[in-house]
Design a protein around this nucleic acid. Sequence first.
DNA 1: TTGAAAGCGTTACCAT
DNA 2: ATGGTAACGCTTTCAA
Lengths: 338, 338
Amino acid sequence: MDKKEVTIYDIARQLGLSPSTISKGLKGHPTISQKTQRKIAATAESMGYRFNTFAANLRKNRTNTIGLIVPRLNSLFVSQVIAGIEKATNDAGYNLIISQSLEHMEKEVRNVKTMLSNRVDGLLVSLAEDTANFDHFNIFKEKSIPLLFFDRVPFGHDFPSVSINNEVAGYQVARHLIEQGAKKLVHITGNQLRNVYADRCAGFQRAIEEAGLPFTEEQLIISELSEAAGIAAASTIIDLKADGVFVSNDVCAASLMNEVQRRGFKVPGDILFAGFNNDMISRNVFPPLTTVDYPGFEMGELAAKSMLSHLNNQSDINLTENIIIKSSLVVRQSSMRG
Amino acid sequence: MDKKEVTIYDIARQLGLSPSTISKGLKGHPTISQKTQRKIAATAESMGYRFNTFAANLRKNRTNTIGLIVPRLNSLFVSQVIAGIEKATNDAGYNLIISQSLEHMEKEVRNVKTMLSNRVDGLLVSLAEDTANFDHFNIFKEKSIPLLFFDRVPFGHDFPSVSINNEVAGYQVARHLIEQGAKKLVHITGNQLRNVYADRCAGFQRAIEEAGLPFTEEQLIISELSEAAGIAAASTIIDLKADGVFVSNDVCAASLMNEVQRRGFKVPGDILFAGFNNDMISRNVFPPLTTVDYPGFEMGELAAKSMLSHLNNQSDINLTENIIIKSSLVVRQSSMRG
DNA sequence: TTGAAAGCGTTACCAT
DNA sequence: ATGGTAACGCTTTCAA
């Protein structure tokens, strides 16, 4: 059954033309007459011809493919970023190949290898939670393959990146909670290796200091920021007698807030809450959760466009460009006194 | 800067061996002595050799890659499926390339084309909402490339598939609402082209008939099942004086339930609610939402394993196999009277 | 245990 | 406007 694949040689033979003419004709090359182009297209179709990307890539040494590595696919934020990236890359005629590190450096390293063997023209990365060194990215500089980080970007490296100002965002949240009367603030955050968590945390601490409120280490809880972690954190929050809680993502914030209410505390009456991401759940939990809106789509689009412009201009992406996008505080009932 | 890529020829020259020896050595082929293998690995490493997948694929006419097309990436369900697929494919040494149709047939067709030019060894698909014909999948039969659908599977075609029994699940939900005292049931569903919606809908109707309750068309609302669609449906639900609402996904169910409560109705007091998917939001909305748990991870793993077994045994995947996985009703407060 | 050489399907240059 | 042909980097017989 499995008949052999049709090649441009077969089409050439069929039409009494040469392979190179077929190749050009298929691409709409202007030196091939309209008439032959149509003939070529028609017989290619009827013979069931499929373009062989490998052969072309091998020959051209260029794949028209951009790689994307994200920590996880299952967040609204990530899927918005991907939508933005897809829009930009599709418009430019690039393919996208996506993989997830599942928050582990080990998998991230494997993903990078796969991307390299697939000879992506460029790579977009948002780091795994526990990625502790960046050796697996060195090759990109050596081979001058454009590499750009977004959202979860490495500290202390001069790779180009697109992100929000997490320090400022964290500061704004904490400051808002303080303005609403919170005295004993707690921040639930993730792995401090990642800028998104460390920076928000720094902003949080700056707001507390600035307000002259006391601060001790116990007010910082490092967690997985999962639904389960939120529930698990409830006891600690209650024991600490916290009256303002800033959680570094909405999923964890929502489950924690629910658990605290289940145990008889009032929100926002007894404890103020704020999350991060403006995930769908922040609008649908009760009370609606104050959060930070995070322009995922724009971030993806910008990251991809930046990559594409480097790819097209051959300009050196390592003349580092760090793009910062605006985020905004969304105040809802969970953090409003009076 | 951009020095030329290192090839096995370069390694061969460096070591005074032949390219074929390098090729075999790199793969751990048993006819190459351990000593040479180590030497080869070491110099490959030190010369910065990168394996060229294209050349290999071109030669082998096989890619060790499985394609995956999903409607959207941003649902918990989909990401669980992907995790299951990744586990199975990784274990078997296959690569995965993922794309989303964004619920549109047009994009799905393009995605299929891309997968074909990337010469995937097999393709896993969950259909877009509006895919109305399946011509773009015919080529898989012609070329005997394994194609397997999961979750959103085509009606009236003999492609192999993995899914749950949506009719039974829909029946169970409706039946439960009826047992809890609902008399005027409404079902909010999606495009009836898709089995997941049409079958649940059929089950819903069967339960109503069986209970001898009246049924008219207005009790069926076709919507996008989005957060916004949920809010938009509130007025209709209220006007119809529905006392039991079954929504075909949790996102839409949650936003609708919230909107109805915002307008002063009690849940479950005045109206019973049930969703579908056991999404995170179903547990975190108030009141907790009755739903159907849907084994995404298992579905993905099974789909991938089935695909892999076809790829390895060369067995004809079209000797159709339709796998049905169990789903289960999760009863929560939103549908419990008394 | 290693090597020689053909071939995978395309592209791009140069020639006609 | 079309054709000839080498080259891309790897795998795989078959031979040594």
